[in-house]
Every structure is written in structure tokens, then in C-alpha cells.
Amino acid sequence: MVRDVTLGQYLPGNSLIHRMDARAKIVLLISFIVMIFCAFNFVSLALTAAVTILIVISSGIPLKMYLKSLKVIIFIVVITSVLNLFYGTGDPLWQWGFLKITWSGISRAIFVTIRIICLILATSALTFTTSPTNLTDALERLMKPLKVFHIKVHEIAMMMTIALRFIPTLLEETDKIMQAQKARGADMDSGNIIQRIKALIPVLIPLFVSSFRRAYELAMAMECRCYQGGEGRTKMKVLHMSAIDYIMIALMAVVLAGVIFCNIFFWELV
């Protein structure tokens, strides 16, 4: 089954983070990501990691879900940390040909690993606790200033909403078509890579055809309901900033200041 995809899955709940405004969450996530890459020494990195753990806990999402989303990128984490291991400068601790491991290489590898893990956990916390509609609504609102440059913000947001909405539908469709072709003896689980790619053609062509059909139907249905872009369109659920959001933003500012403080005062710990 292709349905076991966790990355970006919304899990309804009523935790502190669930109740936050989606716009605040996005802005905080962006500043958090900046913060992750601003942490230059182990003290500030520890602070970042501690905040990440706090976010994970207060989101009220089972830890199992976070681990699942980490599993998807474990490969990237391993590759980048191994690469960084060999990129250090200074006295080699171990050498084999041009490959050498140094203290700075080790510390770089640890840094990169922790940074990527924090990044994924924080991003997952956003997607786990925010419904796709809220997320795109918030993005639409946040991108509004781009209208000055004649960027069609509403249309982009609508496209994102539709794309997110159809991911499960397309997965289900893929599953069905695969079953149907397997029933006709299609062999998808064996053979070399070229044979496997060829075996996907009987799945991909019907999938494309039905995606286009769906797109036409959806366009028709939207037009029947008089959709004509964002002009003059109002929202049923208006985004609303509450006290939690302001408190969280203030906290974030404090932490960010803390990280910068640690960077300055423990600079020799790099």
C-alpha cells in the first residue's frame, strides 16, 4: 500500500500549538529556522534543541508520529553528517588516503545532524497541528504584500490548497490502478531498474488521464459555484490572533536573543 505517508499529515487536537494562529506559527517557524542556523556553538545549539523538545511536547502529538517523519529523512541526515565528518580542518585523528577525520569534522557532523533533526521536528510540528486550509489561508495572508509585484497570491494559495487536497485522492487512485494492472499480471516488484520503470507505464498513463479528467471536473464545479479568483472573496473562518500568539512571539524573541547572547559570550566553545 502506498498510503503510509506521514510527512505533512494533519492530526486534529486541542493542544496549545493547535490553538495558535496559523500565521503566527508560520512566522515563528521561519524565525526558528533562522535561529537554528544562527546557533554557532554548543551552548546556543543546546538552547535550540531544548526549545525544539518543548515544541514537540506541547504539540500533544504522539512521539511515534515525529519518529515516523524523521524516518523519511534519515538517509539525508546520515549522508550529510558523514560528508561533514571528512570536511574538517586541523590535526587529523584518523587518516586513510585523502580521507581524514578531525575534531572540527566531528563537531561539524554533530552540528549538522542536530540542526536537520530540529528543522524536521519543528516543521512537522507545524504541519501536524495546522489543517491544510488554515495553512494555505495563512500563507495567502502572509504573502499579500507580494501583490505589489503583481504576483497572484490568491491563485497560488488556491493551487496549494487543491494540490494538498488531492494528495490522498491520487494515492488511492494509484493504488486502485496498480491493483487492476497487477490483476492482469503486471509485475511491479521484480526485475532490474529499467524493467521496473517500464512496469510503471501502465500505472502512470491512466493516472495522468484521470488527473486531467479530475482537473476539468473540478474547474467546472468551481465555475458552477461562481468562483472567479480572490477578488472580493470573503472567508468563512477568519484567522484570529489571540493572547497565546502574542505570548509565543514574545517568547520566541527572548529565545532568539538568548541564542545570539550565547553566540557572543561562549564564542570560544565552537
Binding site: K176, I177, A180, A183, G185, P206, V209, S210
Partner: peptide, 17 residues
């Protein structure tokens, strides 16, 4: 087994390729 037990799914026309 799949050759011996043929299966026609619902809306099979969507699997033509």
C-alpha cells in the same frame, strides 16, 4: 493465480493505457 482468477474492477475503463 492471477491468470487463473481474472478480476475486473469497478470502472475498469480507467485502467486502459
Amino acid at each position: 493465480v492471477r491468470f487463473q482468477v481474472g478480476m475486473v474492477f469497478q470502472y475498469p475503463e480507467y485502467q486502459l493505457f
